[in-house]
Design a protein around this nucleic acid. Structure first.
Lengths: 194, 194, 194, 194
DNA sequence: TATGAATGAGCGTTCATTCAT
DNA sequence: AATGAATGAACGCTCATTCAT
């Protein structure tokens, strides 16, 4: 792996600082000056890397969405059966949401908020294409219910955001069995009953 | 029904304005001055009804959460079977989320954001008790999967927020059939398979 | 003594509340609303008794100044010798400053601050005429130094404000002996040495 | 003497503006915006130099108190006799109060008002230590009356504030003779009579 | 007389953004 | 490329004052 260039380090530090501040107190408690301080950078420097605050937020969103997708699909291949593939992807998504808590919380906030440009949101969705393709295959094979992708997403991936939030607030604790139970609920909700 | 007092009218107008601005642009783009203007009131007047901005947001949240719960349980009674009862409540929730779009969007933002005091969130959850009780009964009867309420909520109610968002952005259109499909997915995910 | 009329009671309550709030936190921490609350009166009512806040403050000042003068001269008569008379007045002034702490603190703040209209200050000074006359007599008799009244005041009455402040902050405690010492210093500073 | 840095110039300008506005209209009529304008600075800039308005006022007070003390003791040395030393210090204090009118008026307002933190007041008093030491020496030598420092201060230094106020309002005019008379009154009031 | 809800100008303060260095 | 002092518009909020009741 190539070592990151100095400026790439700064960029990453800015992104990390943004995520950290936003998830803890929300957009309005993440001033540029604090982001700069936390990234060990001067406020002015941010504007060498990002056009303005909105651009910064958008870029952070897209970057994290990309890393989320990379994680989701890292073990998946199209030779898998639909059920195998879905389980594989779902578990990786769960893994991401529960291990990369900060990033996942950030995405959850963005997705339920007018914080991000609609355009960037659209852009971020594209990363999920392999999952949509898999679902399509599943529907053609009669394995998965014949409903739109939004619905499939709503009942399989989206619930994880809720569980992640609950875990964050220490309302629940999550172990392997818990994940497995959650997976079964996701699968039960979308699989085609005979 | 009693006519609202003049001051109750103002209070309602302030709440409505808050919801409207927050859902369109987020907490940080809903300044008190705009809320006042939209409610046809002077900025100072807000502080006759609410202690400060945080209090305003909290109260709006709680008020809407209460009206949400009232809607959810309005036709429910405890003589219903678990499945009947769940279907009844779920459909009312769906109805609320899809008809009272603004209020529902507001709740969704609050629930995925550090916008609201943790205390008010806890307060807001209490309204759901009848649903939790119903689930408990279902679990005792072996009709509903034996998992924690957070999970049951995550896979039945929470997905509606995602669908509501999608509808709002005109990504999907929702009709009776769509609702029925969604209901089945919710039920399939939590019902105890034999 | 005649019982105070209802409206005179309110007036007095307003004056007392004003004094109380101003001495504790200064003019800027004595809003009309708090004054009204402390006087058990509605904010609007204040404006039936006083033109505006400045007028209220001025009137409070003048009223207290008058009561201060009444106290100062209550036992004095012009048959007294200059030294007797001065001692008598000075002790009464000391008594006022140390017993009617709130009123005295209020006067001290007013006299060292642009809080009061210059006109009202001028008005307030008139009450001291008997003391000035006494001084004049003393100077004519060669008993008191031949300097202007401002100077005599500065070295006899004004120092009490400092001692009163110190007492208020519990930096010193004051008893009869202390008063007597202070009196001697006042007298020593103005008496004509042979 | 080193030229002041650009930021030191701004700091001084802010302090000067604060003094000017406060002495003319009081704390409550010295808004940050006016202070900024008078210092030829934008409102936000104040907060680069001072934490908030209270901090600004405190710092101004302490800075002036220090310069006051520096002036008071600039010619004094401990080899002087008590009377010499006292006269020296007293005259310098008088000089400061009558020449640096604005600063002196500011101190007078602060010392008779709850404008300044108690803590800062305590801090400001420390500067007077040499005078207190001198008084102690005088008392040990039987030259000065055996009373507490507060009293000595009340009858020697504090009266100057009153004269200064009177001069400011053009009630009196002050010349060398006047100063000398005032000095004698101060000395007469505290010196031990045989 | 007396009220107190309502006003809105103005406060102290923050912060996204710029620009001279 | 990087800085950080400076900006000033805009924020949340207060409060002297008014006026319909």
């Amino acid at each position: 792996m190539q070592p990151l260039s100095k400026s790439e380090i700064k960029r990453k530090a800015l992104i990390k600082a943004t995520v950290c501040l936003v998830i803890n107190n929300g957009f309005h408690a993440a001033p540029m000056s604090k982001i700069a301080k936390m990234a060990n950078v001067s406020p002015g420097t941010i504007y060498l890397y990002f056009e303005n605050k909105q651009d910064l937020i958008n870029k952070v969103y897209l970057e994290i969405k990309a890393s989320f997708a990379a994680h989701a699909f890292k073990d998946f291949n199209e030779q898998m059966t639909v059920e195998e593939g879905f389980k594989n992807i779902w578990k990786q998504i769960a893994d991401f949401k529960l291990m990369q808590v900060d990033e996942a919380l950030f995405l959850s906030q963005c997705d339920n908020t007018p914080m991000i440009d609609e355009e960037s949101k659209k852009e971020g969705i594209k990363h999920l294409q392999p999952l949509l393709d898999l679902w399509k295959r599943g529907q053609e094979q009669g394995v998965i219910k014949n409903c739109c992708h939004y619905m499939l997403y709503a009942y399989t991936v989206y619930p994880l955001a809720f569980l992640m939030n609950a875990k964050q607030k220490k309302d629940i604790t999550i172990n392997e069995q818990y994940i497995q139970d959650a997976y079964l609920m996701a699968w039960d909700s979308i699989k085609q009953s005979k």
